[in-house]
């Protein structure tokens, strides 16, 4: 395996926004993707205030690139309005981190986590009965 890009190492060594928000908070959306048996599990959370991402947090069990990509995603999400947050794509993350083809799946997984977190938040806005975090309920491409 070749050496990692400075951007990967930077986010891996100094991850942004590591931690957790209360998943029961009505303003918080939680997205969890991956499968621990496959060696990757990403939990990404956003707090939406006035239609913008006011806070983002993550926890990740996975390879260093998965950690770096999730960290980068939280950094990019902060301050975005919902439309822009939904439009954040895996290719942007992969390009910013100069990921080799074998690691593109990591950024794909992170995009899925963002989508799930936003969907969870939207569901909460739709009504209290629809609450609860969205978990990995469909087969995700493993991070490799």
């Amino acid at each position: 395996m070749s050496a990692w890009s400075p951007a990967v190492l930077e986010h891996f060594e100094r991850p942004r926004n590591a931690g957790a928000l209360d998943p029961a908070d009505p303003d918080v959306g939680t997205g969890e993707v991956g499968e621990r048996a496959h060696g990757d599990l990403i939990r990404l959370q956003v707090r939406v205030r006035d239609g913008r991402i006011a806070e983002a947090r993550f926890k990740a069990f996975g390879c260093g690139v998965a950690i770096a990509a999730t960290s980068l995603a939280t950094e990019r999400l902060l301050g975005l309005d919902l439309a822009a947050a939904r439009a954040l794509r895996d290719v942007e993350l992969a390009a910013a981190l100069a990921l080799p083809p074998v690691k593109i799946h990591c950024s794909v997984l992170v995009e899925a986590a963002i989508r799930r977190a936003l969907e969870d938040w939207e569901r909460k806005q739709a009504g209290p009965a629809a609450g609860g975090p969205v978990n990995a309920d469909e087969e995700e491409a493993p991070c490799r």
Binding site: W4, L9, F12, G39, D40, F61, G62, C63, G64, A66, I67
Partner: peptide, 8 residues
């Protein structure tokens, strides 16, 4: 995860 640990 082992690969992350090696990177660390």
């Amino acid at each position: 995860e082992g690969e992350a640990l090696m990177m660390g």
